[in-house]
Computed example of a mutant assay.
Amino acid sequence: MEMRRLTPDELDDCVRLAKSREWLPERRKWALLFEAGEVYGLLLGGTLVSTTVLTRYGAGYGVISMVLTDPAHARQGLARRLMEYVLEQADGLVLSLTATPNGRPLYERLGFETVGEVTSHVGVFAGEPSGVSRAATAADLEPILALDRELFEADRGVLLRRLPDLHDPLRVIERDGRVAAFGGVWDTGDQLVGGPVVTRDPEAAMALLADLLAGTAKPVRLDLDTRQTEVCAWAEAHGVQPGFSTKLMVRGGALPGVRPSLVTSYNVALG
């Protein structure tokens, strides 16, 4: 048995493992995780059978994701061993993750506590653009980073600097000449994932989402904290219906961020 940090050359092995669990392959997302995070693997006889990803945001906070084990090796304690190894690498960080019902007992045993719930809303968006937002420009990047540091309360710059390359469209709302909200859409091929959407009020969030999603024929997925009651109701009224839910869990301290302002995550693997 070998546990270690994987290299980008092993991306295909991660995709294969995801497919074995009937997850979408999402090569683009795996590539971003290798670039922005730390991808760890457990190998048996040289074959990758389990993964966990740690993405650090500054010196105090990180997100755990992509906890996968080959079904042929399920229920052998491999995911727990790898998680314990990754927790050692995290070295005292406050950590969060989103947990399915199957994964939640493991995370509880490892010291994670439930602090919220995220529901994935999926459907074809049926609505008109608000006209309130505008397309982001290169000059907006630093104001976006500043707003996110204030409201996320940790530094996601390693990800947000990739927004113009990976999110199309990327839009902002200005108030009094300053960026007051920003949001993007991630195209996975099969659907559009809305996020991140960061704003000071739900009205701006809904206006921004309407401009991001109007006119697309692809299914849309919005991973919304259930405490975002106004945005959740708005999504349902526009054809994006609630589906499966996961628990938002944290270990090692309080979850950072002004949560009402963090309408959707970058994606659930990255916080």
Score class of each variant (00 low, 15 high):
residue 127 G to W: 01
residue 136 A to I: 00
residue 90 A to P: 02
residue 102 N to T: 12
residue 101 P to S: 08
residue 116 G to T: 14
residue 127 G to I: 02
residue 129 P to N: 01
residue 132 V to R: 15
residue 140 D to G: 08
residue 125 F to G: 07
residue 107 Y to T: 06
residue 107 Y to P: 06
residue 112 F to C: 02
residue 125 F to A: 10
residue 140 D to N: 05
residue 120 S to M: 11
residue 103 G to P: 14
residue 140 D to F: 12
residue 95 L to C: 04
residue 116 G to D: 12
residue 101 P to L: 05
residue 117 E to Q: 15
residue 87 L to R: 01
residue 115 V to N: 00
residue 132 V to E: 09
residue 105 P to L: 01
residue 137 T to H: 11
residue 118 V to P: 09
residue 114 T to K: 15
residue 130 S to R: 03
residue 95 L to M: 07
residue 96 S to E: 08
residue 108 E to G: 00
residue 111 G to N: 06
residue 126 A to S: 15
residue 108 E to Q: 15
residue 121 H to F: 13
residue 140 D to H: 13
residue 115 V to A: 01
residue 101 P to V: 02
residue 123 G to C: 07
residue 131 G to H: 10
residue 127 G to V: 05
residue 133 S to D: 08
residue 125 F to C: 07
residue 121 H to P: 12
residue 97 L to H: 09
residue 114 T to F: 02
residue 98 T to Y: 12
residue 129 P to Q: 11
residue 98 T to L: 13
residue 135 A to F: 05
residue 88 E to T: 03
residue 118 V to E: 13
residue 89 Q to H: 06
residue 99 A to P: 03
residue 137 T to N: 10
residue 96 S to D: 13
residue 137 T to S: 14
residue 133 S to I: 06
residue 104 R to N: 01
residue 142 E to K: 09
residue 113 E to L: 01
residue 135 A to Q: 07
residue 135 A to S: 06
residue 139 A to N: 03
residue 119 T to Q: 11
